[in-house]
Amino acid sequence: MINSIEIQGLTKSYGDFALQDINLTLPGGAIMGLIGENGAGKTTLIKCILNLVRRDKGSITLMGMDNLRQERQAKEEIGVVLDECFFHDNLRPRDVGAILAPVYRENWDAGLYGDYLDKFQLPQNKLIKEFSRGMKMKLSLAAALAHRPKLLLLDEATAGLDPVVRDEILDEFLTFICDEEHSILISSHIISDLEKAADYITYLHGGRVVLSDAKDTILDSYGRVGCTAAQLEDIQKEDLVRVRRGTFGCEALVSDRAAFHRKYPGLLVEPIALEDLMLFIGKEKSK
């Protein structure tokens, strides 16, 4: 099966910040969650994929198509929802449909667009300026799905939405992914959403990929060790990914819970949630 996204050696520098040597693969039929702190490079990565910014090095293929040489063909197969609604306030959902229909030509499914508007309870004739943020994001999603894309790119699309709307949108993603040819790359700060929906997690930190694997593999293998400073000294440094030293004790992140437990049976190693893992890597310096 062709991978939905393949990124190799991607580099993009802004002077004070750079995406460095990004390698990433999103297989078909999967959801990849892109996590990382503000300014870690998530949006820049999505912009590089969409050729909104010029990359310095590397290659990106989308459904097997080069994102520069076959940009238009690739974009026919992509639905995009970015962190805000880009439709003018004085337009109405029916106008958005009329604008996008000639853009996607035969791929645009006006009936499907109407179905999504009904499903999301978005009135066709209401001005977008009267929409709540949740409604605007649902409209963006309806517009992104109505040409039946194979890949959805979502940049903080659920940020600022209440849990009910977020859950509705996540359900829509899960329905979309039922087709094995469909995939989603979603960047989000709401880790609980990604824990619920994502198959793969890629963690960007300081412009680099520090972790990219299947979510279950990460959750099954990574762990947190709680110990004293003296116990920490007895652990070999290569067995630890990150270390956090506090007044009352120390914590360490390990990448292979089972192996660690076999090697140090006296120390308690617990499973770790994605959010804690992100805090470990994001807040602490390397061991």
């Binding site: 969409l50 940009e71 238009r72 992509i78 995009v80 970015l82 880009f86 306030d89 853009v103």
Partner: peptide, 18 residues
Amino acid sequence: AYDEQAKWNRYAMTLPLG
């Protein structure tokens, strides 16, 4: 001015138009 207000151009560049 309307496009700037809506940041439309960023969205337009994601469409398959060039």
